[in-house]
Design a protein around this nucleic acid. Structure first.
Lengths: 148, 148
DNA sequence: TAAATAATTTAGGACGGCCTAACAACTTTA
DNA sequence: TAAAGTTGTTAGGCCGTCCTAAATTATTTA
């Protein structure tokens, strides 16, 4: 299962949300490739059992395809949330997440999740965040600055 | 400049540290590819001005090549430090860093750096880390647990 | 210094993913 | 319902990176 394969599955998954299926043209525009490339990939994915493609009509994921897509999406969401917590802008966060979601070791993903939850659940979260933001701007840790 | 190109430059940079140069065989083993592939890549990189290759002898980076290699390395180090702070094991951290170092947006890298420094410079760092570790194990935020 | 060994290069090929151009099949509309 | 427009497919090619096998060059050792 290559990275690109995962990209396709996730794109298809998302595009299918509303109508239950999607089309070559939509996938192509989502992934910024030409329809011809999508056609090719669909043939491959369908042969490998990740989706069912009613020729010239619509694409639907199989159980297996959906499973993969969901896990990719989950990983991506953790990353986005995480980068955003860190003060990265949403658009950049999404871009970066999209790129690296495929390759992180499960252990890393677990720790990212832990971190996000830890920070969110901390009673001093607002204060922490505020301090962190000030640190980003001034380069000085507020707790230290006030101590001397 | 492709990802793979960056990998090669960084590998060459590291391998050259000691002796000031390196060899095809070493690069091949570092990157887990065959010498033939290295040969090819060296031809390309040398044509593009990133290194000077005295045929069949040694490889040295040009200024430009060193510049690229250093920036790649810097990014990777931030990532490793970061993942380790997050509780990811060193080996996994290094692996993951190696994979994603190429693709992160500068904004993201900046924030990662900020985070690492912020955490390190916090006066309550030991406490924070301890809490985070306990949270990872129990799933409960220590500050909350003791509050009720 | 000749023979054996080690390192490197070259040639030829594979694979994944992308593209364009030409064609085919549906859909809309006149 | 035929022509025009839209969507999808096929064929042929390209690029980057990798490989194996064979040839070449360098180095070691007897």
């Amino acid at each position: 299962m290559s990275r690109r394969t995962e990209d396709y599955l996730e794109a298809i998954y998302q595009l299918s949300m509303e109508k239950g299926y999607t089309r070559v043209k939509e996938i192509a525009s989502k992934l910024n490739v030409k329809p011809a490339s999508v056609s090719e990939m669909l043939a491959k994915l369908s042969k490998e059992g990740y989706l069912i493609y009613e020729k010239r009509l619509f694409v639907t994921l199989t159980e297996e395809g959906r499973r993969v897509a969901e896990s990719v999406r989950e990983r991506r969401e953790v990353l986005v949330k995480f980068f955003v917590t860190l003060g990265v802008s949403k658009s950049v966060a999404e871009e970066d997440a999209c790129i690296i979601e495929h390759v992180l070791h499960p252990e890393t993903v677990t720790q990212l999740k832990n971190f996000v939850r830890f920070v969110e659940e901390s009673p001093i979260y607002p204060k922490w965040l505020n301090h962190f933001k000030r640190f980003c701007q001034s380069g000085v840790h507020p707790c230290k600055a006030s101590a001397r």
